[in-house]
Design a protein around this nucleic acid. Structure first.
Lengths: 215, 215
DNA sequence: CGTCACCTTGATTAGATTCAATACAAGTGG
DNA sequence: CCACTTGTATTGAATCTAATCAAGGTGACG
């Protein structure tokens, strides 16, 4: 992968890396830090499409040559590995294994978006929150960011609300209930969960691990 | 692509091509006909992830080697081109252009799922229906299935409802309103729309054409 | 002519939004 | 060092959208 790497990029929290509607000559992978990928509707409402974790690939969704249809912003400070979009074709010709991995990543991403669609379409507020917190916790645990069951949770309630299609107020009240019932404790930028019970609430099979490839 | 083609498959309407939870040794492209890709939640509710049109690629989302996490069924009779999943690696090694196209397709798919997420999260029932009907109409028009503005629309209201996260009843009432206001006429398996006004209702920019690649 | 699949419609209820305040902590400038 | 702004979290009350419940209606088909 080395020869396609343009460089490394360090960004401060709260920065916009990619702007909806802009073209971008670069692709990125997240080396560290957490972020958000989102779009705006014409009416100004924001939808968070997914949260970004170390290992995620950014920019492919624009179409392999196209213009961004979503924004990417950093939540914490992030370190990104930068690739040249124009070199992608060379990658496919010269390193089929890497190209294969890339496609794998896109396919897995697509699968996860499908799960998100199922959540937004079929789960109620409590189930959605349970599902999201579980998912985030598992993802962060998988990359080794858990300490005694507690993972960093730097996003705002508003971000969760925008990701799940709920209002901020309702999100807040639902989180409170999850806290009171001991399903999930999210405070001070940190999250810990009662995995079994949260999975039951979220209508998720807790035994099926969600593997993720790395590039 | 010829050398990777295993064969052609013709299926009757209403058949299940791929079952959630089953492994599949094959990948498909839709040559003709329309279908549905969906999942079930643990509580038995169905989510339609997307509708399938000629040109769509099926099976990549399972992960390049994995087990199906969704079902695929035919709505009309369909003709599919069948590929061997095991040959995929050869494709990447021997035909980088084709591999590139494949990745492109996955990326575009992913982009469209992102749009769906935005709809489920941020649009109300009327907007969602408008958006869905517009999208279906444009897609079918793009592949030349429109006749004097009318396209085939073989899905049931229940399918639309499951795709948009709405109840059948509410979907029905909303469609009626769209019909009464002249935004969209869907009857007898055929759909015609007032494109401009429907796009306005759907909060979509009507001038941005949605290109799709073909393999 | 009865059954089945799908569409349609009215009445009622529940879940989520919106509105409106309050609380609290971290900065910032005078 | 304190008043003041700013961003985020919290909570109660009022309202509304969409779900659920419960019947019909229609057309195809054996």
């Amino acid at each position: 992968m080395e020869q396609f790497r343009v460089g490394e990029m360090v960004v401060a929290p709260g920065m916009t890396l990619l702007e909806e509607g802009q073209g971008s000559a670069h692709l990125f992978t997240v080396l560290s830090g957490l972020g958000i990928r989102s779009t705006m509707l014409e009416n100004g409402r924001r939808q968070v499409i997914n949260f970004l974790f170390p290992g995620d690939f950014i920019g492919l969704q624009a179409g392999l040559a196209g213009e961004m249809r979503h924004s990417v912003e950093s939540t914490t400070s992030m370190v990104l590995c930068v690739f040249n979009r124009a070199d992608l074709w060379d990658l496919f010709r010269e390193q089929p294994e890497r190209a294969y991995d890339l496609t794998w990543i896109a396919a897995v991403e697509e699968h996860f978006l499908g799960e998100t669609i199922a959540s937004l379409g079929q789960r109620d507020a409590t189930e959605r929150l349970a599902w999201a917190l579980l998912r985030i916790h598992e993802r962060l645990s998988a990359i080794g960011l858990a300490e005694r069951g507690r993972v960093p949770m730097p996003w705002r309630q508003q971000d969760l609300a925008d990701a799940l299609g709920l209002s901020l107020v309702h999100t807040n009240k639902t989180i409170r209930r999850l806290r009171e019932t001991g399903h999930a404790l999210w405070a001070g930028g940190t999250l810990s969960i009662d995995r079994e019970r949260l999975a039951a609430l979220a209508l998720v099979d807790p035994d099926r691990p969600r593997r993720r490839p790395l590039i």
